[in-house]
Design a binder for these strands. Sequence first.
DNA 1: CTTGCACCTCACGTTACGGTAGGGTTTAGA
DNA 2: TCTAAACCCTACCGTAACGTGAGGTGCAAG
Lengths: 225, 225
Amino acid sequence: MKEPPWKVGELARNTGMSVRALHHYDEIGLLRPSLRTAAGHRLYDRTDIERLQQIHSLRLMGISLDETKRLLDGAAASPRQVIDLHLARLREQMAMQKQLVRRLKALADHLDTAKPLSLEELCKTIEEMMRVEKYFTPEQLEVMEQRRISVGEERMHVVRDDWNEIIPKVRAAMENGADPTSPEVLALARRWKALVDEFTGGDPAIANAVKTMYNNDGPALQEKL
Amino acid sequence: MKEPPWKVGELARNTGMSVRALHHYDEIGLLRPSLRTAAGHRLYDRTDIERLQQIHSLRLMGISLDETKRLLDGAAASPRQVIDLHLARLREQMAMQKQLVRRLKALADHLDTAKPLSLEELCKTIEEMMRVEKYFTPEQLEVMEQRRISVGEERMHVVRDDWNEIIPKVRAAMENGADPTSPEVLALARRWKALVDEFTGGDPAIANAVKTMYNNDGPALQEKL
DNA sequence: CTTGCACCTCACGTTACGGTAGGGTTTAGA
DNA sequence: TCTAAACCCTACCGTAACGTGAGGTGCAAG
């Protein structure tokens, strides 16, 4: 049972990477396909795909392609050292962020009391911000941003799926004229409310609009929540 | 009391920015000094410095220079709003950093206790962690870590080892399409559940997330729990 | 045989600057 | 007043991790 090697487009489709990224990894020697056709088309076999998996893992941890390459080629610091280094950097960064939060709060207070700020005060704040920024690699920022977006989407989908499950039940219960105080209906209602809370993110304006909806559509239910 | 305007080098020294960055902001029209000497030397006054502070707040929030420019020129943003926005974003970032720290610590932990991990295993561990994290909110993960600490490292290692022992079996059973009602599978499932209970510390929200995980990854098993 | 898609190799664009070259300006001290 | 150090100017190339064509080749189907 031999697996046919994959061409670059197939690999891209199956891993979610872009063709260009794979080309790039080839260019910098991070992932060179084991084979090529006579015409020069890249052919990736199983070992290549495994290496790609590893690259992806390390990248998720915010490790640069350069460092990834050194790690995978075994010619560098131990994984433990790399992790410790990242940890140290992160901790230092977080400490400074805390300080910056304090300073910004103070700044906001100044603005509230409408006293003109001294130049030194302003500059010191900027200086503080610079220090924080220095320790942010663009990679970390990007990974965090990516994660922020994807987590948001994931939760959104989960919420939507739950929503689609619950609403028909609620509707059915209402149409059947089920007892609004029965445990089943109350359980449903509580799940509904939890969903709404998550959905609105605690924004009272949105929650209020939802409440209006309740008032119009399910007054009997709303009381018991 | 009039404040003399600053030359670019002075401003750089006092804010920690680089001269080059200030030149750059001038080039792209983001921060043009209010004055120039006859010879073309840049002179920054107080309003320029205030604008610089806003620029930095926005930039630290991950907003591009381009958008920063549009925002600041859009007459909209009050300094107070900018700072509040910045504070909110900072807190969000710190939450994510905590998450990253936790991940890295878990990884380091793994490297300490488990015998020398191969890179392959390391990467698999990372993937595992990422998959698990998909199902939990940061707060829940935090609770779990608190619990980890209170339960004590040693016990946790035992749990983790159990986990590592059970999961492959579960997975194998699922892949083999084993009968979900068979005693072996049920026994496995019960051990798994016991582990989860210990791990989650009885938090129903966390248990629920685990359940969602079950629902997505092991529907056949979940029914019999 | 041609259509169309996937592939190839350059090679320049992107962001937010860093670094340096080559040359003018300012200012403190002799 | 002259000079040398320190400062300033513009202008251009380099970075990471690719995106985005341009212009040309390979290959299976109709």
